[in-house]
Write a protein that binds this DNA or RNA. Structure first.
Length: 429
RNA sequence: GGAGAGGUGGCCGAGCGGCUGAAGGCCCCGCUCUCGAAAAGCGGUAUCCUGGCUAAAACCGGGAUCGUGGGUUCGAAUCCCACCCUCUCCGCCA
């Protein structure tokens, strides 16, 4: 959420930023509701002031044994009037809030202006894409041939877009999760957390998924609870409503969770394989930072995520999302895209964002500076470190061999009981 | 699921119709003392909204906030109702 005062005083700035994002905002409605809100509020406050003063008089008179009946009667009317006005006020407040909750974050000055993903800018490319003497197979064909992925049975169990890992495939997924968590906790200074996978409406609103993107979420029937679409939601909300110590910042958390997404509107996209599933695993990185260092924290967050790909020996590129491609809550986002040989493209495997105070304002996460009065909103950041299913897909495609086996990256072998290669040997059925 | 107890400031904790934005303590920040520190003493220390002043603050005025939302009342942290959460006991259970 943007700061209501900032919006009111910088309508043109907000309008321009929204235009850069490719949206249009009905800020005239905001102006009108906010003006109405202030007007009614000042009238209410004047009446309440009167009531407070006279009520005190009444107390004094009653104590002195005097008759205060006329004042009581007058204040009864004032109170009724206040009640009426309060109804007006809540209408205005709801209108302002609704508009404000629907406004996306303002892009940071360093974000390139652009219409869509074609205008994203390349930051760098790392690692060499493997060369094949044969036509590289798609990861779903490799996985099915090895007997470690079974999409048909997954569809029987649940439906389309659910994964079933078997044998070494299941172990590979688990190995990656442990590998990533170990690096982030032991080498990058993140604290491991294991949060709830189901969250309430407030948490979803705090990080920005609600109220606007309910269609992307799985909701529990009979409950006002939702399956997490990313660990960002439960982990960022760890400190919801808190005032943090300046000395405690930056706070860094890493968490593995399954992620559940309805993928509404993506029919026909990435229908095969592990790329776009309703359920997938992800190791997430979340930071709470002081405002002045949050962009430095974004750079290290990105570097922390990149480390995983580098250790696995996967080629990747980093791009900066342009204004038109930026997510709702983000002020700046880097995507890391891993090389996928079968399709010959780089595919998103991590997304690292600084939300500045946008989520902190919604979730009410503040901090106090030593020796200073008052509190300030923290900056929140997060990034995938990494999407595990897509990492499996990348490993299968990048390290496939002519004989159909897949070489396991060396860094991962300790987590695979020393296994060096995925073969069809253990295929059971 | 049944019975009971409770949710108050950064933290602990008193208050149970008006003198309470809230005692007391802790933390934190100034000052005194000290070569310095500790201890002790003195003072200060919630958040949000709104108006004035301002380049912006500081500052000043007003309002709101004692789990959340309603209600009673001239007046509610205090009384009533609903909901949420926590704890204890019983039942059930991985």
């Amino acid at each position: 959420m943007l700061d209501i005062k900032f919006v009111a005083q910088n309508l043109d700035v907000v309008r321009a930023a929204l235009a850069d994002r490719g949206g249009k905002a009905d800020l005239s409605a905001f102006e009108k509701s906010d003006a109405g809100r202030r007007e009614v509020l000042s009238e209410i406050e004047a009446l309440r002031h009167q009531r407070n003063v006279v009520s005190e008089e009444i107390a004094r008179m009653k104590k002195a044994g005097e008759n205060a009946e006329d004042k009581v009667l007058r204040m009864r009317e004032v109170s009724n009037r206040v009640k009426e006005l309060e109804k007006d006020l809540s209408v205005h407040e709801a209108a302002v809030r609704e508009i404000l909750m629907g406004l996306p974050n303002l892009p940071h000055a360093s974000v390139p202006v652009g219409k869509n993903e074609e205008d994203n800018t390349l930051v760098k490319r790392q690692g060499a894409a493997p060369e094949f003497a044969f036509a590289p197979a798609a990861h779903w064909d490799i996985g099915e041939a090895l007997g470690i992925l079974d999409f048909d049975r997954a569809a029987r169990i649940t439906g389309a877009r659910f994964p079933l890992y078997l044998g070494a495939g299941a172990r590979l997924e688990r190995a990656l999760i442990n590998f990533m968590l170990d690096i982030h906790t032991c080498e990058h200074g993140y604290k491991e957390v294991l949060p709830p996978f189901i969250v309430n409406r407030q948490s979803m609103t705090g990080t920005g998924q609600l109220p606007k993107f309910a269609a992307d979420l799985f909701k529990l029937e009979g409950w006002d609870y939702f399956l997490v679409p990313t660990a960002e939601v439960p982990v960022t909300n760890i400190h919801q409503g808190e005032v943090l110590d300046e000395a405690a910042l930056p706070i860094r958390y890493t968490a593995h969770t399954p992620c559940f997404r309805s993928e509404a509107g993506s029919y026909g996209k990435d229908t095969r394989g592990l790329i776009r599933q309703h359920q997938f695993n992800k190791v997430e990185l979340v930071k709470f930072s002081a405002p002045e260092t949050s962009y430095d924290e974004l750079e290290t967050l990105l570097a922390n995520a990149e480390t995983i790909l580098a250790r696995l020996g996967l080629a990747y590129q980093v791009i900066t999302l342009c204004t038109g491609d930026l997510g709702f809550s983000a002020a700046k986002t880097y995507d890391i895209e891993v090389w996928m040989p079968a399709q010959g493209v780089y595919r998103e495997i991590s997304s690292c964002s600084n939300f500045e105070d946008f989520q902190a304002r919604r979730a009410d996460i503040r901090f106090k500076r030593k020796g200073k009065k008052g509190t300030e909103l923290v900056h929140t950041l997060n990034g995938s470190g990494l999407a595990v299913g897509r990492t499996v897909a990348a490993i299968l495609e990048n390290f496939q061999q002519a004989d159909g086996t897949v070489v396991i990256p060396e860094a991962l072998r300790p987590y695979m009981g020393g296994m060096e290669r995925l073969t069809a040997a253990e295929r059971a059925s």
